[in-house]
């Protein structure tokens, strides 16, 4: 069926704008019907892939979290025993999981504000502070974002190495002794956080630069003319106008950090003595090293609920209350 023939009465007038409004509904039906069909045809590839590789797993994870899904069930998935909420009950008595929850919270609570504040400062510096070689600086600060986490985690592991590492060497030159960053329970997590800030700063910076450039120059000029100093301008004008960007940057950084996996996997394997074991890493181990897949699914859902909860909370707290 072609477009032209399917439009009865449409040919007589070049642009039927429905001016009279007297067109009977029956005449419009085939057009709307075909539009619907075409819309759905264009949506089909995405929706099919979404259904199989996202919607189905979301539901399947929930189902698995109520079973004792183990290694034998990979061959016969429907053979898994239903165990009710046993996995969830066990989870909250699980010392290791509680440690993983704590570590993940530590990573987020320390890492997100550091990343967002430093990202904002760098954006202000590059957008307002300097006027030449901006692109050069921007490229430099953004570069870590595009690189493989695995590769840079390996590099950082070497930089922080207690015997041959750069930091230990520089400290020795100054007559100090650097701690064994990744080998000490106290220093391992701060080291991972530092690396995450280094790697994700660029994303936040780019968002804030775009936000800053969307603020009309006149607004700032007006603030200046009214006698606002640089600090006042920042606090009373710039930051409030950046609120949507701040919200977006905080939310995406938080979601990313709650899922933290690669850094501890490569740099510390969760150690020393579980000091850097995160929820994702704990889930990976339970699921793929021990094949406690039902139990790991329960972990995945707890993490998902935490992520949703934190996101909703942030949207509530940080959204514009002045309107």
């Amino acid at each position: 069926m072609s477009l032209v023939t399917g439009r009865p009465g449409g040919e007589a007038v070049p642009k039927p704008r429905r001016a009279g409004g007297a067109r009977p509904p029956a005449a419009r039906a085939p057009r709307g019907g075909r539009r619907n069909l075409q819309g759905w045809l264009f949506s089909t590839p995405f929706l099919a892939l979404f259904g199989v590789f996202m919607l189905f797993p979301i539901v399947a994870t929930l189902w698995m979290s109520f079973t004792d899904f183990g290694v034998r069930d990979v061959r016969r998935p429907l053979g898994a025993q239903f165990v009710g909420v046993d996995n969830y009950v066990k989870l909250f008595g699980d010392e290791t999981f509680r440690t993983a929850l704590f570590n993940t919270a530590y990573f987020v609570v320390a890492g997100v504000p550091l990343t967002v504040v430093l990202g904002l400062l760098v954006a202000l510096l590059l957008n307002n502070g300097i006027d030449r070689a901006r692109t050069f600086f921007r490229v430099g600060f953004y570069a870590p974002v595009v690189t493989s986490i695995v590769a840079v985690a390996i590099v950082w592991r070497f930089v922080l190495d207690p015997s041959d590492g750069l930091v230990a060497g520089l400290a020795a030159e100054l007559g100090a002794k650097a701690p064994d960053f990744l080998g000490s329970p106290a220093w391992a997590m701060p080291s991972l956080i530092l690396m995450a800030v280094w790697r994700n700063l660029g994303t936040v910076m780019v968002l804030f630069i775009a936000g800053l450039q969307a603020i009309p120059t006149q607004v700032r000029e007006a603030a200046r003319l009214d006698g606002a100093g640089a600090w006042q301008e920042l606090r009373r004008v710039t930051v409030p106008l950046l609120r949507p960007t701040l919200l977006y940057a905080t939310v995406i950084t938080t979601i990313g950090y709650l899922n933290v996996f690669e850094e501890p996997f490569v740099m510390t394997q969760g150690g020393p003595s579980n000091a850097t074991l995160t929820v994702s890493l704990d889930m990976y181990r339970e699921g793929f090293n021990f094949f406690h897949m039902g139990y790991a699914s329960a972990m995945a859902y707890v993490l998902f609920v935490v992520i949703m909860g934190v996101t909703v909370l942030q949207l509530r707290l940080l959204k514009d209350n002045t309107r």
Binding site: F50, V52, F53, T61, I255, N259, M283, M293, A300, F304
Partner: peptide, 19 residues
């Protein structure tokens, strides 16, 4: 779909892919 973390999917995805 933008909000769904990949970690939520990998366990059943692994089972699905091996089937």
């Amino acid at each position: 779909a933008l909000m769904v973390p990949g970690n939520l999917l990998i366990l059943p995805l692994y089972v699905l892919m091996s089937r």
